[in-house]
Design a binder for these strands. Structure first.
Length: 522
RNA sequence: GCCAGCGUAGCUCAGCGGUAGAGCAGGGGACUCAUAAGCCCUUGGUCGGAGGUUCGAUUCCUCCCGCUGGCACCA
């Protein structure tokens, strides 16, 4: 079976409700996934939840629930969130699922057996109240501790460590030899910068059961559970393995959880993540995989964070953006459009309600919406909705846009891709004024010319529907529906000029993005 | 502090050796198919500051000022 295009988001930690940042990551991943499906790739898109750890355990306790019951409840909320965003994920992983836990344990066994995991004591300052060790940073200058820590005592604890340090030089060389491994470039430079300037410590991967029960048991030591990153990162690998991916199963050998006859997924093509967890994905994860003898993912794509009105979003100040509220008011596609159009993948974004309104009005309503509306309207008015003979006056513009948008999508430059689409929209709006079909319609001798103009307009609208499909799939389908075209706007090959056939009858125009800012005239 | 990057029209940014461009916002105009949308024209800048290299610098170099990001795991 040929290798599928395998793309993931980070898995979200279930100690709170989903917010704009989560929505953004899922949407940009969805755009790339949909684009590749359109290009003809068989895509596997994975998202999901990270459900273990102390904070989940505590949150569950606070609500009087067992951890699993608490996670189940939140998982429903998160699944609904993903669905509300129109995300086309193929699977949804939860780290409490047995299929995941088995693979984590198999991986731990393998690394333990080959000597990459060892037990060692750690001594440090421990706060019993916070159930955590403290570092010098948390200590005041006079050596005292903040009262929130309660009594702080010196404690020695044994734990399991993953031998990362020996792979440091290998990783530096790998990243230098693989320029596309971390994107954008400046993030890659950051990773290389600190890899060259610090010595990696081995990674502590366990917690004693007495202190943390909500985790995956360490298979070779029943007194311990696996801790955070080793568990969370493995989700990308555990799902393919559990589905019987040949490469993943081969890595696990006899402990593989399934017959190696499943879809070919590993290695992942893209891990989409936030910049805050770059280190884990660009350092720990490659080393874990290298140690396990697994091929590395092709690319780590690190996106920025969203601000609101130039400031960090925080619940305490109340300057948060609730994706579901925006979607309820403006529609899903307006939301998807804004977050992708506002910034390229990499830098931080700044959400402003005014900017959102402006893009909605000028780009979606007045630009795209009005073009589709006036085009279909004129075809109805002047030709009873019947498509005239093919004509290619706007074809070169459409072809150029298709090429540019595809290039941008393959380079993950989603903002530039949308700009390219809007170039075509603007071209078509200019074309209406240049050719003035409404004047041609008044002169019977210009009937042939009017046919040509109308064909170019409605066909451009159809091509636009295909171009827009990865970004705003609902709108794409609505354009196809108004044109009464039955084929699939999600297939990229339908960008080819000439899809509308002469004699076909289109439907009635319905505004795609109604303006909301106009006060009715008295 | 160290490393990297940025500072260009009111706003968001492009340009990166021959004295500046786009989109939006602002101003004017012609039209009417359309969600009073669209189209055309147009006002805005001594390209952060000071030196240097060069026939010539926004574009290269140095310094200064301002801003941003990174400097891990924090068992």
């Amino acid at each position: 079976m040929s290798k599928r295009f395998y793309i993931t988001t980070a898995i979200d930690y279930t100690n709170g409700a989903p917010h704009l940042g989560h929505a953004y990551e899922k949407i940009i991943t969805d755009v790339i996934a949909r684009a590749h499906r359109g290009f003809g790739d068989s895509v596997f898109f994975l998202t999901g939840l990270d459900e273990h750890g102390q904070k989940v355990q505590q949150a569950a306790q606070a609500e009087g629930l067992q951890p699993q019951a608490y996670c189940d409840k939140l998982a429903e909320q998160w699944r609904a969130f993903v669905q509300a965003l129109g995300v086309s994920n193929d699977d949804f992983v939860r780290t409490t699922q047995p299929r995941h836990q088995k693979v984590v344990q198999a991986l731990l066994e393998k690394l333990h057996a080959q000597g990459d995991i060892y037990k060692a004591p750690y001594e440090g300052w421990y706060s019993a109240r916070q159930e955590t060790f403290l570092t010098d940073k948390e200590r005041r200058e006079d050596g005292s501790w903040d009262s929130s820590y309660g009594e702080v005592t010196r404690l020695v604890e044994e734990n399991w460590y993953f031998r990362m340090s020996e792979y440091q030089q290998w990783l530096i060389e790998y990243i230098e030899a693989t320029p596309t491994f971390v994107y954008p470039d400046y993030r890659r430079n950051e990773v290389l910068g600190f890899l060259k300037n610090v010595t990696l410590d081995d990674l502590c991967i366990s917690r004693p059961l007495s202190r943390l029960s909500w985790g995956i048991p360490i298979p070779f030591d029943p007194d311990y559970v696996n801790y955070v990153w080793f568990d969370a990162l493995t989700n990308y690998f555990s799902v393919p393995a559990s589905l019987g991916d040949p490469v993943a199963c081969d890595v696990l050998g006899a402990s593989a959880p399934a017959k190696a006859t499943g879809p070919s997924l590993w290695p992942a093509d893209i891990h989409v993540i936030g910049k805050d967890i770059l280190r884990f994905h660009a350092v720990y994860w490659p080393i874990m995989l290298k140690a396990a003898g697994a091929p590395l993912p092709k690319q780590i794509l690190a996106h920025g964070w969203w601000m609101k009105d130039g400031e960090k979003m925080s619940k305490s100040t109340g300057n948060v953006v609730d994706p579901l509220a925006v979607i309820a008011e403006w529609g899903l596609d307006a939301f998807r459009y804004y977050v992708v159009r506002e910034l390229e993948i990499g830098p931080d974004g700044n959400w402003t309600d005014e900017g959102f309104r402006q893009r909605y009005t000028s780009e979606l309503a007045n630009g795209l919406g009005n073009l589709v509306n006036r085009s279909i309207s004129m075809l109805n008015k002047y030709r009873n909705g019947v498509v005239p003979n093919c004509h290619s006056e706007l074809e070169p513009d459409a072809v150029r846009a298709v090429q540019e948008v595809e290039n941008c999508l393959r380079q993950r430059r989603l903002q530039a891709a949308l700009s390219g689409i809007w170039d075509l929209i603007n071209k078509a709006n200019q074309y209406v004024d240049r050719t003035a079909p409404f004047k041609l319609a008044k002169d019977p001798e210009q009937s042939g010319r009017l046919d040509q103009v109308l064909y170019n307009l409605v066909e451009t609208c159809r091509v636009l529907a295909v171009l827009l499909n990865p970004f705003i799939p609902n709108t794409s389908e609505r354009i196809y529906a108004q044109l009464k075209v039955c084929s699939e706007p999600e297939l990229w090959r339908h960008t080819a000029w000439g899809g509308l056939l002469p004699g076909h009858t289109v439907g009635a125009p319905i505004p795609l993005f109604p303006r909301k800012d106009l006060v009715p005239k008295v």
